[in-house]
Amino acid sequence: MTASTATTGRPDRVTGTPFTRALGIVTLVGVLWLSWFGLFVTPADVNQGESVRIMYAHVPGAWLAYLAFVVTGISSAAYLWRRTRSLTWDRIAGASAEIGVLFMGISLVTGSLWGRLTWGTFWTWDARLTTTAFLFVTYVGYLAVRNLGGSHHQRARRSAVLALLAVLEIPLVHFSVELWNSLHQEASVAGNTDVTMDGLMLFTLFLGVIVFTLMYVWLLLHRQRALALQDLVDDTGLDLAIAARRAEVG
């Protein structure tokens, strides 16, 4: 289908803007930079050898998943608060949770591979691993609840309450390695005043966090707009929406 052209000259019903396009390019460059540093420039670890390179995707994935779930929580609170109630908050919450599940999935898969290489096992019912799996499953459930149907405001209210409960799991996951004896190593960087990491490794890890953050923002903007379009289609029906658009253009 050829998109009709609005007065701005941009094709109709796209989620991209000049800003997201620039952000996308910066993100892509960042991914290439991170891959180059992570795979070739950084040294192998004295104990773990080459497998330490998994860290540059595993740790940023986990951190950004936490951030995404916190954004879901804040947006949900903003929706529930009467004075800021808007479906935009609800869609940001939903989009952020989707990306969070994606990043948590990346972290779980890379963590499992890393575990096989260093611990000698893909999975074990350890406090950190178990709480992370529970967090992941909770947000998959949150996404399912979002799609149960009903009006947009019903969906928003129901999922916002769930999001505010789910976000409480994050401190449990983060501190699980300190609360209980755990196979997973404790936090190496966050909240640790005595960071014992090679300088170039630490730099690459932070580079990974920045690149994953850019990727998160880029995905969030697109996904939030896509969800808005989806709601628009739901609201008015596709034919009505097209008719309205035609009326505006003509």
Partner: peptide
């Protein structure tokens, strides 16, 4: 299972 520490040093 090998419990590696959270120390990372270059080889």
């Amino acid at each position: 299972e090998v419990k590696h520490s959270n120390e990372y040093k270059a080889e």
